[in-house]
Amino acid sequence: MITEWILDTLIRALAVGTPLLWAALGEIYAERSGVINLGVEGMMILGAFFAFAVAHTSGNPALGLLVAGVVGGASALLHAFLSVTLRANQYVSGLALAMFGLGLAGVLGRGWEGIPLLNTLPEISGLTYLGVVLAVVLWFVLYHTRLGLVIRSTGEAPAAADALGVNVARVRYLAVVFGGILAGIAGGFFSVAYRPSWTEGMTGGTGWIAIAIVIFAGWDPLRAVWGALLFGALYYLSFRLQTWIAPEALRMLPFAFTIVALAATSRRRRGEGAPEALGLPYASGEK
């Protein structure tokens, strides 16, 4: 009985956590380079639509995910251009991207709703395991390689990095686009694996939860794994436990966790907080 509960919950945690993890990992890299991208939801929904459209047309869901990554990356490029090159307000640009993505996917998706997808990917697939492997690799790169040092330095002290010969703009561009690719794939997971079909707004706010997990995880890829799994487990349990606990209270469970987690991480040790230059545009030669 109890093992069944644990096994059920673990499987659901992995399924719900997979897109959260992918999106959060991408966002961690973008933010580590100093660019906050609130457009995760928009990039995800574009990924979801294109993954479905390509998977349906070609019959190949993996190809759909690939295209979702490209589309996510391309939409992130827009955010990078606005916030890095034009030095626009990153929060405004990100929110605009979220709305733009939802709107564009809605328009493009007209007529695609109500079509079943014949070839789908299993829910717990390579994407889940790859996500965990990716988290380990990204953690290693971030803390134990020169590349990681470069990325972190552009997020912590872009002027110093610049003085040391780092091309801050280029690093930020690459990090933001990388984040977009992962968000696009995360969105694609919804439409070809988690619930194989297209419906407007089908990512249902997952992008925002991913951003919360980034903060909860203290911008650490390994901790993002636990954040995503914990949210996934609590989300499932919020329905499973309805027989015993009032559903109104359970509704808040996964989200209350997020708030508690945010509060808990505010008492963090040195070096675990947000990147110092997060959200600040940088121009070479300026103080």
Partner: peptide, 23 residues
């Protein structure tokens, strides 16, 4: 019965169904 408190929320509908299957 499981309540999801949304008219449209595929992820909630999905996990609620999984919870019912488990029971």
């Amino acid at each position: 019965v499981r309540w999801i408190f949304e008219w449209f929320k595929p992820s909630a509908a999905k996990e609620a169904t999984e919870a019912l299957i488990a029971e």
